[in-house]
Write a protein that binds this DNA or RNA. Structure first.
Lengths: 378, 378
DNA sequence: TTGAAAGCGCTAACAA
DNA sequence: TTGTTAGCGCTTTCAA
């Protein structure tokens, strides 16, 4: 039996642990979610029949009515299999890590939708992570795997990525699919038809009568950047046009790179009459720099970019761009990853359908036409 | 001993199970991650001592060297506790769902960083989800809980949110914290000092000599919008200034709402000399509309917005804005959620530190000053 | 100061 | 056609 002092201390300890316990009613505890055994009981079958019915085990030879009873019970109870129990048994957690750089890049919105669609279709859970986080926490990917939180990864690499973080994936033999990366060390990949996109953008300018066409590209040692530049040069060459060196830049894919590219072209002398910009953010940078420098787009310079986004409609002037099938990229990336996880065989998928599509806005115009809309007064 | 026929059948079965096994070398299998038993063996202790040492169980009375041995072994093996095993036992998974609208809103980048920081500090895993997804899949949150994938939620609600999806959280007694929502039905919340932010923006304009100041606000039945509008009116009143009705709009927080607000103000007649815009995207819309309509910012109209983002530096002209402590909001939201999950007591936190901070760019100017930088030619 | 063992929810091998 | 049961990796109670 406790003394009075002990009673007091015990009460005090309780009070410290629950400083506002009086505000919490005891029945506020969250009820236990329904379990497989509840479903089995409700359907009047054994737990194992319930499990095999819900998982559509082909080896289960049961009456159709029995199976239907199980499903009805599961629906009724809003049963969802506990992920931990299942994962412990199956050594797979039904979740994939999705590592993207720079989540606020406006063009990701559609990619994210596609990935979520693919996940919904295949009943897996996406775990989104910003690539920046790998800098603070280089073991993140390995930890995710070792903790059994992710079965595989979707990764969009960039120039500024900690490549070492991805090496460990190969070492640990974790399935991963790279998004729109033509880099050779991708184990598996799903890529867009960048070549067709750039060709479409370039031909658009040629169709408008432009002949002095420049190219704002990515860093020279980036595989995607080289591919896009080659596609530009090939399209020009197919028309019998040569590309002036001074009108081709390779500063990078970011907003500031686009600003710098246009600035340097201006400083170097005469401008081309039109520019293909290899990526969306750089094109926004070009637009911004043209405002700063008083270059009128599209009257004196037409600009078209690879990749579209909502921000393209918001810019000044609204940006003409080539819309790439990013939603499809996301969906296919998920299904490809699941296949790779299933059989361990690397795959390289190429998305040609739907094809790239030109979205005409205000930043391109026929060569030599004067602008139509209200000029900004000064 | 097996017969030849049995051998054959066994081989056939293997082939069926691994249809393209010849392409996969046998050692390509992913090695089993280290387990607690491996750590225990390496440290020469029992599995239970290892567990209690790693979890810093205060009831464990063990030699310091023993504990150190366990940690050394864990480090050596890169041990990470399997989440499924732990979760099965503890009924908590160490993950929180983070539901945000409109991931590509540029201002989220900093909020996301803060949330990830908070998660790293507390060793929990964020599961990001776009609110749009709740439309396709209204049971998402409940499923996440019933599957044992998330222990609680961080939610940023908006006008277009399926409120019903959140009701179920309360019904199911799932801990959740609302981000910067002053809405009354938030069980718990962490909010910024919007009032101070709006006051700072307004005073900035007043300090520049503006007296005819307008306000571009959110929808009238949005709690945050009302609060911001009241703060604006209070700051004006404190200076003895009245607010003209026609210079106050309540179209909403989106880009297009800002465009529409300015358009309607222009159509209605004389403009104020300065505008406080209650949110970032709407301010970008105001800037865009001013270009369309040939209104020179900041010469004829100064614009300042609540909330800053990288896009503010990219707009034309670069947007002067009030930087709110979004990173801190993210960090505190995580720690608050963990507290609520721990004791079930709702909390309402108010972030005043760091204080809102004015970021001067190009969209505000002293009343009556002509512009300094190179005008855009026409 | 340390260890043995039960049991979390599920799947699948095996038994009936 | 259906049921019983072992065991996935971990934490924690209880015993030593």
């Amino acid at each position: 039996m406790q003394t009075r002092a002990e009673d007091d201390e015990s009460i005090a300890a309780t009070a410290r642990a629950f400083p506002e316990a009086e505000q919490v009613s005891p029945d506020i505890r969250r009820p236990r979610p329904p379990q497989l055994r509840d479903v089995a009981r409700a359907a009047d079958v054994s737990i194992s029949v319930a499990s095999r019915a819900l998982n559509r085990d082909p080896n289960l030879r049961a009456r159709e009515t029995t199976i239907e009873r199980v499903f009805a019970a599961a629906r009724e109870l809003q049963y969802r299999a506990n992920a931990a129990g299942r994962s412990l048994r199956t050594r797979a957690v039904g979740a994939i890590g999705v590592i993207l750089p720079d989540v606020n890049n406006p063009f990701f919105s559609e990619l994210l939708s596609g990935i979520e669609e693919g996940c919904d279709e295949n009943d897996v859970m996406p775990l989104f992570g910003r690539a920046e986080r790998l800098n603070d926490n280089p073991h993140l990917l390995r930890n995710l795997v070792n903790e059994g939180r992710a079965d595989g990864f979707l990764i969009q690499p960039t120039d500024v990525f900690p490549a070492a973080a991805f090496r460990t994936l190969a070492v640990d033999r974790v399935s991963s699919v790279f998004l729109n990366s033509h880099s050779v060390d991708a184990q598996s990949s799903v890529v867009l038809d960048d070549r067709a996109g750039i060709a479409l953008a370039t031909r658009h300018l040629l169709d408008l009568g432009h002949r002095r066409v420049g190219f704002v590209g990515g860093l020279p040692d980036n595989d995607n950047a080289s591919l896009r530049r080659e596609a530009f040069e090939a399209t020009m060459a197919a028309m019998g046009l040569t590309v002036e060196r001074r009108w081709v830049t390779d500063r990078g894919f970011a907003f500031a790179d686009g600003q710098r590219a246009l600035g340097e072209m201006v400083d170097a002398g005469e401008l081309p009459s039109a520019l293909v910009v290899a990526t969306h953010n750089a094109a926004l940078g070009v637009l911004r720099e043209s405002l700063t420098r008083g270059i009128d787009i599209p009257t004196s310079l037409s600009v078209v970019s690879l990749h579209d986004s909502p921000a393209a409609a918001y810019s000044w002037p609204a940006l003409t761009s080539v819309r790439m099938p990013l939603r499809e990229l996301g969906r296919r990336a998920v299904s490809t990853l699941l296949q790779v996880m299933d059989d361990g065989i690397p795959r390289h998928e190429f998305i040609t359908d739907p094809a790239p599509h030109l979205v005409m806005r205000e930043s391109t115009r026929e060569r030599g036409l004067s602008r139509l809309h209200t000029p900004r007064r000064d």
